Simulated assay, not measured.
Amino acid sequence: MPTEAAKGPASYFPSIEKKYGRPIGDWQQLVRAHLPAKHMELVSMLKAEHGMGHGHANAIVAHVLSEPKR
């Protein structure tokens, strides 16, 4: 039974983990710690402070911000 490929922002997660050497959960927690910042503020933080590319940073932020509010 084939597994369905990740879609949307989550499709970037394997390459993010490989390139930056940290689990996605770590990146998501980092973004959550900076809330309630705006989307582009969070993307800029990942890029400036962690050297992340725009697409990868955007994918993580978009995924975190799409989570249901707790």
Results as ranks from 00 to 15, higher is better:
A10R: 08
G25Y: 02
E41F: 11
D26W: 15
L65K: 03
H50G: 08
G8Q: 00
M1Y: 02
Q29F: 12
L30R: 01
V61C: 01
A6Q: 06
A59N: 02
A10P: 06
E67S: 09
A10T: 03
Q28A: 09
L42D: 10
D26L: 05
R32T: 09
M52K: 15
E17H: 09
S15F: 06
A57V: 01
K69Y: 08
Q29W: 02
A6P: 11
I24V: 09
L65S: 01
H39A: 02
A59S: 07
K7P: 00
G8K: 00
P2I: 03
P9Q: 01
Y20C: 01
A57H: 00
A59E: 03
E4C: 05
A48G: 08
A48H: 11
T3V: 04
A57W: 01
R22L: 13
Q29H: 10
T3R: 03
N58D: 10
E67N: 07
H54I: 07
K38V: 11
A6S: 07
G21Q: 05
Q29A: 14
E41Y: 05
P68W: 00
M45T: 04
D26T: 02
G8V: 00
V64I: 13
M52I: 08
W27I: 08
H56A: 15
A33R: 12
S11A: 13
L46Q: 06
R22W: 05
P9M: 05
R32W: 06
V43P: 09
A48T: 09
L65D: 02
F13Y: 14
K47V: 12
E67H: 06
H50Y: 15
G25P: 00
Q29Y: 06
A10H: 00
P2H: 05
H34E: 12
D26H: 06
S11K: 07
A59V: 04
P23C: 02
A48F: 04
R32I: 13
A10W: 00
D26E: 11
K18N: 15
H54N: 11
M45N: 04
K18D: 15
T3L: 08
Y20V: 01
V43F: 08
A59R: 00
H34I: 04
P2K: 08
D26K: 03
K38G: 13
E41V: 15
G8T: 03
Y20G: 01
G55Q: 15
R32L: 10
K18P: 10
Q28V: 06
A5H: 07
N58Y: 10
E49C: 13
V31Y: 03
P9R: 05
T3A: 01
L35Y: 08
A62W: 01
K47W: 02
M45D: 07
M40W: 04
H39T: 02
S15C: 05
L35A: 07
P14C: 09
A10V: 04
S44N: 12
H56W: 12
L30A: 05
H39M: 01
K69R: 09
Y12F: 14
A59G: 03
M45R: 10
P36Y: 02
